[in-house]
Simulated scan of single mutants.
Amino acid sequence: MAKLFLVVAAMSGLMAVIIGAFGAHGLKDRVAEDLLVIYQTGVQYHFYHTFALLAVSLLLLRYPQLGLLNWSGGFFIIGTLIFSGSLYVMALTGFRWLGAITPIGGVVLIIGWLMLVAAAYKGVGE
């Protein structure tokens, strides 16, 4: 899983740069200011959780026996897709009802962090 998470983290970082640049340069005059702020929030959390996934992949190289790290990485991937993805689509389409989906992604991200806390408590550093 470490290699998979590392590849996904690298691709996620690549996509976050591309999506962020598109928002900053391609959407500036095409999307309402409030929707552009929503879009940038998606990019911001996308980057945060790319780095979190990268950390999980590196921890897995050192602590492959900690299954909670696998859960953490999986939740980070799914949560980023739901959280940032819903914000991207909402900003691009103006479908504000997608804002009701975004918190689901946030909860999934929180679970990812809880799994990382549990992994740290259970065995990282021992």
Rank of each mutant, 00 (worst) to 15 (best):
M1T: 06
M1Q: 04
A2Q: 13
A2D: 14
K3C: 07
V8G: 00
S12L: 02
S12E: 02
S12Y: 00
L14G: 10
M15N: 05
M15F: 09
A16E: 08
G20K: 01
G20N: 09
G23S: 10
H25N: 13
K28F: 08
D29L: 14
V31F: 09
A32D: 15
L36D: 14
L36G: 11
V37Y: 10
Y39P: 00
Y39V: 10
V43N: 12
T50V: 01
F51E: 10
F51D: 07
A52Y: 10
L53C: 00
L53N: 02
L53I: 05
L53W: 07
A55S: 14
A55R: 02
V56A: 03
V56N: 05
L60S: 04
Y63M: 00
Y63F: 12
L69Q: 07
S72M: 06
G73N: 10
G74Y: 01
F75T: 05
F76H: 07
F76P: 05
I77S: 02
G79M: 01
G79V: 01
T80V: 00
L81E: 04
I82V: 15
L87M: 15
L87N: 12
V89S: 09
L92Y: 11
T93F: 12
G94M: 03
F95N: 15
A100D: 10
I101L: 14
T102K: 07
P103I: 00
G106L: 08
G106P: 11
V107D: 12
V108A: 11
L109V: 05
I110G: 12
G112F: 03
W113H: 02
L116Y: 05
A118K: 04
A119T: 01
A120K: 01
E126R: 01
